[in-house]
C-alpha cells in the first residue's frame, strides 16, 4: 500500500530546484562564451571571437600549458602514492605510526588551502628550492594523493577479501595475489582517483599561488588576476574550454568504471 510512490511532490520540487541551482550558472556561462558582443551582458549573436582571442593570448596559453603539465604529473604521482596508501591502510593490519599516518591523510581533505599553501611555501623557502613547476607539482601531489587514497580505500573496503585469500591458498604469494586479483578489481577506483586528482590540480588557485615562482603562473592564477579586474568575455571562453576538458575526463572515467563492471554504486565519492 505504501509502495505506490515514495516520492512526494516536495521531494520532486526540491530535486528539480537543486539541480537547476547547480547547473544554470554554468550553462549561462557557456552560452555567453559564444556571445559576439564585447559587452558581457548584451547578446550580440553567436560567435567564436573570444576563442580566437584566447588562442592568440600567449601568456594565457602558456599558463594553460603549465597547468596541464602540473595536473598530469601531480595526478600520476598522487595516484601511485595514494593507491599504496590505501592498500597499506586497508590491508596492513597494524604498523607503528598508523594513527599518525591516517591522521596526516584525512586532514588535507578539509584543511583550509591557505594553511596548506603557506606551510609548503615556507618549507620550500627553507630548503632553498627554486619555485616553479616542481614545487607546484609537489604541493598538488600532497593534496591530491589524499583524495586518491580515500577513493581507492573505499573501493578496497567493499571488496570481498575471500578472493585474495583464495588466491593465496592456491599458492600465490601476497604480491602476486594483489597484482592478479586485487588490482584489476580496484582499477576503476584508481582511474577515478587519477581523474579527481587531475581536476583538483587543474582547479587549484590558492596552493599554486603560494608555491609557484615568478614566470610560472598556472591557468587559475592568470584567470584570477583577470577576474579581479572585471568580467571579460575571453574568460568565459577559457572557462568553457576548461569545462569541456573536464567533461571529456569525466566521460572517460565513467566509461572506465563501466567497463570493469562496478558492483553497485561506488561508495564514497570523496
Amino acid at each position: 500500500m505504501h509502495n505506490i510512490s515514495r516520492l512526494s511532490r516536495f521531494n520532486i520540487a526540491s530535486l528539480a530546484l537543486g539541480l537547476a541551482f547547480l547547473y544554470l550558472p554554468i550553462i549561462i556561462l557557456v552560452i555567453y562564451s559564444f556571445n559576439a558582443s564585447r559587452l558581457v551582458t548584451v547578446w550580440g549573436g553567436w560567435s567564436l571571437r573570444w576563442y580566437h582571442e584566447f588562442f592568440n593570448d600567449r601568456a594565457m596559453i602558456e599558463a594553460a600549458w603549465m597547468s596541464v603539465k602540473v595536473a598530469v604529473s601531480s595526478a600520476t604521482i598522487a595516484t601511485l602514492l595514494g593507491t599504496l596508501t590505501a592498500v597499506a591502510l586497508s590491508r596492513g593490519e597494524r604498523f607503528r605510526g598508523r594513527t599518525l599516518f591516517s591522521g596526516m591523510l584525512y586532514a588535507p581533505l578539509v584543511m583550509p588551502e591557505v594553511i596548506t599553501g603557506l606551510s609548503l611555501l615556507l618549507l620550500f623557502v627553507a630548503l632553498n628550492a627554486e619555485r616553479g613547476f616542481w614545487t607546484v607539482t609537489i604541493a598538488h601531489t600532497t593534496l591530491t594523493m589524499c583524495f586518491v587514497a580515500v577513493v581507492v580505500q573505499s573501493r578496497l573496503g567493499s571488496l570481498d577479501r575471500s578472493l585474495e585469500e583464495a588466491a593465496m591458498d592456491l599458492g600465490c604469494n601476497p604480491v602476486r595475489a594483489f597484482v592478479a586479483v586485487t588490482l584489476p578489481l580496484i582499477a576503476p577506483a584508481i582511474v577515478a582517483g587519477w581523474m579527481l586528482a587531475f581536476t583538483l590540480s587543474l582547479d587549484d588557485l590558492v596552493i599554486a599561488s603560494f608555491t609557484t615562482g615568478p614566470g610560472s603562473a598556472t591557468l587559475p592564477i592568470r584567470i584570477y588576476s583577470e577576474v579581479r579586474l572585471g568580467v571579460k568575455p575571453e574568460i568565459n571562453a577559457i572557462c568553457t574550454l576548461v569545462i569541456g576538458l573536464i567533461a571529456v575526463v569525466i566521460v572517460i572515467a565513467s566509461l572506465a568504471s563501466k567497463l570493469s563492471s562496478s558492483q553497485g554504486e561506488s561508495a564514497a565519492p570523496l
Binding site: D203, L205, P220, Y224, V227, V231, I235, I243, I246
Partner: peptide, 8 residues
C-alpha cells in the same frame, strides 16, 4: 573548476 563556478 571552483574558480569558474564563482566566476559564473
Amino acid at each position: 573548476s571552483f574558480l569558474i563556478r564563482i566566476y559564473a
